[in-house]
């Protein structure tokens, strides 16, 4: 058997350095990563990378910072499986493997000049954050911007400080809801769909972006359709078991689509007839 080093392989991995770690919750940490020579990851908001801890494996993680942040990028990682568990054990200055970015991100060019309703449920805030940051950093390129967030309980809300900043901005309409309130919670209570009827949306110029747990999409899309938002202007990011990122290993397949290459971001009109999608 001959072994040859492949100069070009899509399985090649770069070593990223952990610049900073911030604990966001008992289960989530935010890792700020630098590539060798502070090279740019060159991603679109909504894309993901394969993150490796050698000897343990690789996990797909969506990049949660905007490409407008150049020297480093952020990964928000929940301790939920073998690889993410091993990533949580790493320290600042440590290294992990980075492969990618992969997939089709949010169509930011298409969104420009339009009103945006950015909707995240639970951990959906993680991929959506890259888009929110991008939009805020290029704020005048977009029309009216609404951010609607929902999660189960107030203490599950990630990026609290940052969200507070979004809330204070005069150029962003912000609303937030929890399924179950805590005593100190003075905000809205109820599932995320309850935030939509109150929004004033102009269907011709509104794009809605939805990221959340699988169960959420059907109901949120239903509310948006009631508001006459066209299918093409409803954009979702779907979660699947992305492994190779190359549209081959099959784990992320949704009927004929490979979530890792054709998605994870889809326009609703592309997937509304796909029964396995949502």
């Amino acid at each position: 058997m001959n072994r040859q080093i492949l100069k070009s392989s899509h399985f090649a991995v770069e070593r990223g350095t952990i610049v900073r770690i911030k604990t966001l919750s008992p289960h989530e940490k935010l890792f700020e990563i630098a590539l060798p020579g502070n090279a740019r990851l060159n991603h679109d908001p909504g894309q993901f990378v394969g993150v490796s801890v050698f000897g343990v494996g690789e996990a797909p993680i969506s990049v949660c910072s905007s490409p407008t942040k150049r020297d480093t990028f952020d990964l928000c990682i929940r301790d939920v499986g073998r690889v993410t568990h091993a990533i949580h054990a790493l320290k600042e200055g440590g290294s992990l493997g980075i492969r990618g970015p992969f997939g089709r991100g949010f169509p930011v060019r298409l969104l420009e000049g339009n009103d945006l309703v950015l909707i995240a449920g639970g951990l959906g805030i993680v991929p959506l954050r890259s888009l929110v940051q991008y939009v805020i950093n290029n704020r005048r390129d977009f029309g009216k911007v609404s951010i609607l967030l929902g999660c189960r309980t107030p203490d599950e809300m990630l990026f609290g400080d940052e969200i507070e900043q979004w809330n204070k901005r005069i150029d962003v309409h912000f609303a937030c809801t929890v399924d179950r309130a805590a005593p100190e919670w003075h905000g809205h209570v109820g599932v995320i769909t309850t935030l939509i009827p109150g929004e004033m949306l102009v269907p011709e110029r509104t794009f809605a972006v939805i990221v959340g747990p699988p169960v959420m999409y059907k109901y949120v899309i239903g509310e948006l359709l009631k508001k006459q938002i066209p299918d093409r202007q409803i954009i979702v990011s779907l979660e699947r078991h992305m492994k190779c990122g190359l549209g081959r290993c099959g784990h992320c397949q949704i009927e004929n689509l490979y979530c890792c290459q054709d998605g994870p971001v889809f326009h609703y009109d592309e997937i509304k007839h796909i029964k396995e999608a949502i």
Binding site: G55, V56, R82, H85, A86, A89
Partner: peptide, 11 residues
């Protein structure tokens, strides 16, 4: 044993 030493679960 490797999984134990690396403190990761073995599935």
């Amino acid at each position: 044993l490797k999984a134990v030493l690396m403190a990761v679960p073995y599935d």
